[in-house]
Amino acid sequence: MSITIKDVAKLANVAPSTVSRVIADHPNISGETKERVREAMKELGYHPNFIARSLASNSTQSIGLVMPSSADKALQNPFFPEVIRGISKGAHEKKYSLHISTGESLEEIFDGVVQMVQGRRVDGIILLYSRFNDKIIDYLLDQSFPFVVIGKPYKYKKEITYVDNDNVQASIDVTEYLIKLGHKRVAFVGGSLNLVVTIDRLQGFKHAILSNNLPYRDEYVKHVEFLKEGGREAITELLSLEKPPTALVVMDDLMALGVLNKLDEMGKAVPDDISVVGFNNVLLTEISRPPLTSVDINIFQLGYQAAKSLIDQTENQNQPVKRIMIPHNLVIRESCYENKQNL
């Protein structure tokens, strides 16, 4: 025989309505009562019927996640599993589930978002990226549907809650670190120019170069995919220049690992021949050869704060728009070296 709310209420010596409020984590129920009811639920092996609750409350208790590309491709980059881990933690604390977009193309991804919204499959959406002129953002604003962006929105900044790093300053910090090591020929390997994060980090790189009275060389700037193959492609082109760079700012660790692999194939030693810095500080940076100096952007916190902010929106329609900045720090390892020749 299945266990019901009435059975839990009887064991906890409370009314069935109190059990319902404890399940919903109602703020007006005391901590002592919540603990007693939860102990009774545990003892009896009672599990709430969240589908029935969703129908009754007009809430799905689910968050939609939208990738910048197909999930199969995006999840090759360690950034996304880690940011989803942060989102999952925030969602779990409020008993929300996750619904991940599975479209292969931008059109399929957009259609998936429309299905989430029109079918009321989720209570809100987190965009795991920020790109220029994104019609998904236009659509969500038009529908007045709750959403949060990880990354600075291209427009409507005063209307959209977002979680981000100060990517301009982070790029300044890492570029100036290389310049202080004596490098005058520093290159930048970035992602797609359709992504706001690329523009911000390129802006910081350019500012650091010019403010240190170094020439800004267009040929030292490469834009490739956020994959190992992109890093391999970029370093091949940069080392073919008449005056190749002595140091690289690579705006993603997976790309940086591609750079390290290709340099090893070419017989170039890191950091003796060329210094390399990445972004994101994923686990792979510690076990690469050599261990990679990287900007830690606190990926987990980006996801965790995004989830918390979105759930606040869904539970309180009067929640003000938030701009949440997650701090960064440079983790120095063994991939950078002082350029004593000052070339």
Results as ranks from 00 to 15, higher is better:
Ile3Ser: 09
Thr4Ile: 01
Asp7Pro: 13
Val8Asp: 05
Lys10Thr: 10
Arg21Asn: 10
Glu32Leu: 05
Thr33Ser: 03
Arg36Gln: 12
Pro48Ile: 03
Ser54Tyr: 08
Asn58Gln: 15
Thr60Leu: 02
Gln61Glu: 09
Val66Gly: 07
Val66Arg: 07
Ala71Pro: 15
Gln76Gly: 15
Phe80His: 05
Gly86Cys: 06
Tyr96Ile: 02
Ile100Glu: 00
Thr102Asn: 14
Gly103Val: 01
Gly103Met: 06
Glu108Asp: 11
Glu108Leu: 01
Asp111Val: 00
Gln118Phe: 01
Ile126Ala: 02
Ser130His: 10
Ser130Gln: 10
Asp142Glu: 14
Gln143Ser: 07
Ser144Gly: 03
Phe147Arg: 05
Lys152Leu: 06
Lys158Asn: 15
Glu159Ile: 00
Asp164His: 11
Ile172Lys: 15
Val174Pro: 13
Glu176Ser: 07
Tyr177Lys: 10
Arg185Pro: 12
Phe188Ala: 05
Gly191Cys: 05
Gly191Asp: 10
Gly191His: 07
Ser192Gly: 11
Ser192Leu: 08
Asn194Tyr: 08
Val196Pro: 15
Val196Leu: 04
Val196Tyr: 11
Leu202Asn: 14
Lys206Trp: 00
Arg217Asn: 15
His223Val: 00
Gly230Cys: 01
Gly230Asp: 07
Arg232Asp: 07
Ile235Met: 08
Leu238Gly: 05
Leu241Met: 05
Lys243Ala: 07
Pro245Gly: 02
Leu254Gly: 01
Leu257Met: 09
Leu257Asn: 04
Leu257Ile: 14
Lys262Phe: 01
Asp264His: 14
Lys268Ser: 05
Leu284Gly: 12
Leu284Trp: 11
Ile287Gln: 11
Ile287Ala: 02
Leu292His: 08
Ser294Ala: 04
Leu302Gln: 15
Gly303Gln: 12
Lys308Phe: 02
Asp312Gly: 02
Gln313Asn: 05
Gln313Gly: 02
Thr314Ala: 04
Asn316Phe: 03
Gln319Lys: 07
Ile324Pro: 14
Glu334Pro: 06
Ser335Cys: 07
Ser335His: 09
Glu338Met: 09
